Computed example of a mutant assay.
Amino acid sequence: MSNVISLSDARLGDRGVITRVGSVGGDEHGAELERRLLELGFVEGARIQLLHQGVFGRDPMALKVDDMRVALRRHEARGLTVELFAEAAE
């Protein structure tokens, strides 16, 4: 099983490190979303943990990014690639 996933596929309790920040789609909206995610601290090398997810459609998701907590929708998390830590990938 691969331990590199899109952040949108993360499950409750998953922990890892961001390995790639890319836009969702090649349009202007995708580039703006990528810029905003970078400003919020979603940068390569940041440690991340999925703390909570919404009841309907598992949206939004609450994440711990390094030392802060951020809420994000799953479609916004699609452009982030995360390498899960070994204990979370099992």
Score class of each variant (00 low, 15 high):
53 Q>G: 02
81 T>I: 03
49 Q>H: 14
3 N>M: 10
31 A>Y: 08
69 R>I: 04
26 G>Q: 02
9 D>Q: 09
74 R>V: 07
38 L>V: 10
55 V>I: 14
15 R>L: 10
56 F>C: 08
71 A>L: 13
47 R>K: 08
84 L>T: 05
72 L>F: 13
20 R>N: 12
26 G>Y: 01
78 R>S: 08
6 S>F: 06
83 E>L: 09
17 V>Y: 08
4 V>L: 05
71 A>R: 09
60 P>Q: 06
8 S>N: 12
48 I>M: 06
13 G>S: 10
75 H>P: 15
84 L>G: 03
55 V>A: 12
77 A>L: 04
81 T>E: 03
61 M>C: 14
49 Q>M: 15
61 M>V: 15
43 V>F: 03
32 E>D: 12
38 L>P: 01
47 R>I: 03
22 G>T: 08
55 V>E: 12
17 V>P: 01
26 G>L: 01
37 L>P: 11
75 H>K: 13
12 L>T: 01
81 T>Y: 11
1 M>H: 05
2 S>T: 10
74 R>F: 07
78 R>E: 08
14 D>M: 03
43 V>W: 02
74 R>E: 01
44 E>S: 11
53 Q>H: 11
17 V>L: 07
76 E>M: 06
10 A>D: 00
23 S>F: 09
24 V>I: 11
33 L>P: 10
19 T>N: 06
21 V>N: 04
39 E>Q: 11
85 F>Y: 00
34 E>C: 06
21 V>W: 02
54 G>W: 06
74 R>I: 07
27 D>P: 06
74 R>N: 03
76 E>A: 03
81 T>A: 05
29 H>V: 11
33 L>F: 13
79 G>S: 08
53 Q>I: 04
87 E>F: 11
15 R>C: 07
52 H>R: 11
22 G>V: 05
27 D>S: 09
61 M>K: 09
34 E>Q: 09
71 A>N: 14
38 L>C: 05
35 R>Y: 14
12 L>G: 01
18 I>K: 06
21 V>H: 02
66 D>M: 09
80 L>C: 07
15 R>M: 15
77 A>N: 05
10 A>R: 00
45 G>S: 14
1 M>C: 04
1 M>L: 02
62 A>T: 07
40 L>R: 10
84 L>N: 05
6 S>I: 06
46 A>E: 02
